[in-house]
């Protein structure tokens, strides 16, 4: 992993973050937007495996925790994305990524990531919310992420193939 390639990965995450914060609120449903940063982490996990996805997930999570307008306890998205990177990477290595498996991985990762974030919030009482509210947001965000997968994941996966073809799995 050269610095240039790392920079490209961070740029991809930054682009996802800015789109998520500044563009997608216009189409948000109940304030829930597609979690593009999570999709980038899952794409990295499918192409490059758990180890890379966990490191990228940590970096992306810290970015999402600190970049405006975030105001929750820092480290919560980082933890959620590290786990997502681990799980998605482990699932992806059990076979060739078909459209169905990628979709299933995204759905599982989205559920896992949003729930973990919500759970860490419950533990830290940040903010004090009720379980039905949390569940509604989790369900809507899974639907959003699955809907956006056909448009985003091929791009992300192609990018990770390109920036380091010798280490990515050959299709």
């Amino acid at each position: 992993m050269t610095p240039l390639r790392a920079l490209l990965a961070v740029l991809a995450v930054s682009a996802a973050l800015v789109l998520q914060v500044s563009v997608f609120p216009y189409v948000a449903w109940q304030g829930v937007v597609p979690n593009l940063v999570l999709l980038v982490v899952v794409g990295a996990a499918v192409v490059r495996g758990a180890q890379f996805a966990m490191v990228l997930g940590f970096a992306a999570g810290v970015l999402l925790d600190l970049a405006p307008p975030a105001d929750h306890v820092a480290g919560r998205w980082a933890l959620a994305f590290v786990v997502v990177g681990y799980v998605a990477g482990r699932v992806a290595q059990h076979g060739r990524p078909t459209a169905t498996t990628v979709l299933a991985t995204v759905a599982a990762s989205s559920f896992l990531g949003t729930s973990l974030f919500a759970l860490s919030g419950l533990v830290l009482r940040d903010p004090p919310l009720t379980i039905p509210d949390l569940l509604q947001v989790v369900v809507v965000s899974v639907v959003w992420d699955v809907v956006l997968t056909p448009f985003v994941l091929p791009l992300v996966m192609a990018m990770f193939h390109r920036i380091e073809p010798e280490r990515a799995a050959v299709q």
Partner: peptide, 15 residues
Amino acid sequence: VVGMGASQSFSSTVT
């Protein structure tokens, strides 16, 4: 307003 925090973050903040 140029940025809105997602509901996934369970906090209502904007930039």
